[in-house]
């Protein structure tokens, strides 16, 4: 018995700063937030799909609505699955997040710029 105990105390501690890599399910219980987040993201996706498939509104309005749904979806993903609400190391998260937003908007913006020529052609 004491043999086992001493073995256990010999286990090397996780590197400082890496504790977060250990799963903490035992303390947190069933991941309701994630399950609900998953259900809601499916709902948002299918809502957009159905609106488009059935031409439920005039095109401009349709665009606006699916854009709104997409923003909701992005918020949901960031909030529920990307650990944005968790306190630790927020600065570390904001930096790459800002970078991601920058790259996303730069790429989308330039893509629109590139494809605009079609409006002049067709």
């Amino acid at each position: 018995m004491s043999e086992g105990m001493s073995e256990h105390s010999e286990i090397e501690a996780v590197e400082p700063g890496l504790e977060f890599l250990r799963p903490k399910f035992e303390v947190e219980g069933f991941p309701w937030a994630q399950v609900m987040g998953y259900v809601f993201s499916l709902l948002l996706t299918f809502a957009a799909l159905l609106l488009v498939v059935y031409h439920a509104m005039p095109p401009i309005l349709l665009l606006a609505v699916i854009l709104a749904l997409a923003l909701g979806q992005a918020g949901l993903q960031l909030g529920v699955f990307m650990h944005l609400r968790e306190g630790r190391g927020t600065a570390w998260q904001l930096l790459p997040l800002g970078l991601a937003f920058f790259i996303a908007f730069a790429l989308i913006g330039t893509s629109i710029w590139i494809m605009l020529f079609k409006t002049g052609v067709s």
Binding site: I103, A106, L107, W113, I114, M115, F117, V121
Partner: peptide
């Protein structure tokens, strides 16, 4: 590397500025 991709389709004709 993120800012050069159009060089693969210059001939698409997106225009002189692009």
């Amino acid at each position: 590397a993120y800012g050069t991709w159009v060089h693969h389709f210059f001939t698409m004709g997106a225009g002189p500025t692009v």
